[in-house]
Design a protein around this nucleic acid. Structure first.
Lengths: 142, 142
DNA sequence: AGGGTCGGTTTGGAAAACCAACTTAGGAGG
DNA sequence: CCTCCTAAGTTGGTTTTCCAAACCGACCCT
């Protein structure tokens, strides 16, 4: 049987390899240079170079030259890259709740003044999107 | 420099390897048996066996014997596993928006009657949690 | 000239993934 | 009884990927 076609699988083709999401985390933190990303993720330089190349090719990052002499580069988020913030955030929340032992390394404060507790909701009604509240719709639209 | 300690990195230690999230997707779909997961993900049997073992050890899945003669097993979600639904869902949404070409393989309908468009919001105020609306809180709590 | 920074690429060995075939433990059919 | 079948892995051998360390080129500082 052929494996299931699925947007999550497609997403993982792009950002599912090791270090990809950690590299993106660093860019979200404003660490946009190669050596910063190497240092903060712990990835080896060759693998990171390959991942960044792939993320640029996939349209998640853009390589931007900020100096001609010597040539120096920064990696910036595209719209697709910014949209991954949700994924990164939910992974962090899950890690906070179920993996990390002891004090949490990072806690976010939302602009409303409260410590962030993230929820995934339906945009139409604002109610939480739980597995039980979802059902496959009859037909997919393009 | 030592890599950054981070709950997202911790989360990826558990579910970040190839096939782990795809296996969980199948369990969310109700395909809880080894051969079903193999067939629907396309993973090789040995790698999948290793991933399932790891997910069980991490407390994301539970192995449940549903028949003594012959011995047969199913994998069921724990609370930690169910909590990963958010991650799986956001990855699917991102894939829908930025990777999948042509008609979407799966569209969800929320119990409110609308096609699901997922948003990540702050539980306190209900406003969307964007990168700009978040700032690191002064101190982490245990 | 010598050392340091930045952004990689190269190299060689270790680890992991992939694939097909095999195993184990029990049926089901003839 | 003999053969086939299913489920849930294991095993063995090959191919890929990963990793750490070294290297490179272009530039800057002293």
């Amino acid at each position: 049987m052929a494996p299931r076609t699925c947007s999550m699988a497609n997403a993982l083709e792009v950002v599912g390899e090791r270090w990809s999401l950690l590299a993106l985390r660093e860019v979200f933190f404003g660490n946009t240079r190669f050596d910063q990303i190497v240092a903060n993720t712990g990835a080896s330089r060759d693998v990171l170079a390959a991942r960044l190349k792939k993320l640029v090719a996939a349209g998640v990052l853009e390589k931007h030259q900020y100096s001609d002499h010597p040539p120096r580069h920064e990696y910036h988020l595209t719209d697709a890259g910014r949209a991954l913030h949700n994924v990164v955030l939910m992974l962090k929340e899950w890690g906070d709740a179920y993996v990390t032992q002891g004090p949490l390394p990072l806690v976010y404060e939302h602009s409303c003044g409260h410590v962030l507790e993230a929820r995934v909701v339906c945009a139409a009604c604002g109610e939480e999107a739980t597995p039980e509240s979802l059902s496959p719709a009859a037909t997919a639209v393009s």
